[in-house]
Amino acid sequence: MAMNGTITTWFKDKGFGFIKDENGDNRYFHVIKVANPDLIKKDAAVTFEPTTNNKGLSAYAVKVVPL
């Protein structure tokens, strides 16, 4: 089920960042999981599918909501 969130941290040079989800949890995401990576920036609103990996909470099918 899709969730909403906000990008809180973005490491462009490393290709990953973190999203604060609607429950207040931080989720890892990688640029290859983003549909529109050219719009990635700190504080951008996103929708995504929540999941977990071996390191904890993460996100896939991430879409940055255009302003």
Rank of each mutant, 00 (worst) to 15 (best):
W10E: 01
G24N: 07
P50V: 04
A61G: 10
G56E: 05
L67Q: 13
I7E: 00
L39S: 09
K12F: 07
W10P: 00
G15N: 08
F29A: 00
A45V: 12
P37F: 05
E49L: 15
T8W: 08
G24K: 05
V65L: 13
K14L: 10
P50D: 02
G15H: 07
V34M: 05
K41Y: 08
Y60S: 14
K55L: 10
T6Y: 12
F48D: 02
N4P: 05
L57N: 05
K55T: 08
Y28G: 02
L67R: 10
S58A: 14
E22K: 06
P37M: 05
N4S: 14
T47W: 08
I32W: 13
T47N: 07
D25I: 06
N26W: 13
T52F: 13
T6W: 13
K20I: 10
G5K: 01
R27F: 07
A35R: 12
I19F: 03
R27I: 04
N36S: 05
D38H: 13
T6G: 02
D43E: 08
V65R: 09
D43N: 13
G5P: 00
K33C: 14
T6C: 09
I40M: 06
N4L: 09
N23G: 04
T51H: 14
F48N: 00
D25V: 08
D38Y: 10
F16A: 03
D38F: 09
K41R: 13
T52C: 11
E49P: 00
T9F: 15
H30D: 11
T52E: 12
L57K: 09
K55W: 15
D13G: 10
H30I: 07
I7L: 03
V34L: 04
W10T: 01
L57T: 03
L67T: 13
D21N: 00
E22P: 03
I19V: 03
K33P: 03
S58M: 09
K41E: 11
P50A: 07
A61M: 11
L57Y: 07
L57S: 04
G15Y: 05
T6S: 06
P37R: 08
K41N: 07
P66D: 13
A59Q: 01
Y28E: 03
F29E: 00
M1I: 13
F16M: 05
V65M: 12
K42D: 04
V65C: 10
N26K: 13
F11W: 08
A2K: 14
H30Q: 08
A35N: 10
G56P: 04
L39N: 07
E22S: 10
F18K: 03
K33H: 15
D43V: 03
Y60W: 11
H30G: 06
L67D: 14
P37K: 07
P50M: 04
E22N: 07
F18G: 02
N23Y: 10
P50H: 04
G56I: 08
V62N: 01
A45S: 11
N4C: 10
D38T: 11
A59W: 02
L57R: 06
E49S: 15
G15S: 06
A59D: 02
K33E: 15
D43H: 14
V46W: 01
E22D: 08
K42I: 14
V62D: 02
K20N: 07
Y28A: 04
G5M: 01
T9K: 14
G56Q: 08
T8M: 10
T8Q: 09
H30N: 13
V64H: 02
V65T: 10
V62I: 14
A61L: 07
E49D: 06
D25Q: 11
G56T: 07
M1S: 15
N54P: 12
E22M: 08
N54A: 14
N36P: 02
F48Y: 02
L39Y: 12
A44K: 04
E49A: 13
F29H: 00
A61P: 03
S58F: 08
F18N: 04
R27N: 01
I40F: 04
G17P: 00
G5A: 03
R27H: 04
A59C: 12
L57Q: 06
N36M: 04
I19C: 02
D21T: 03
K55A: 09
K33D: 15
M3C: 06
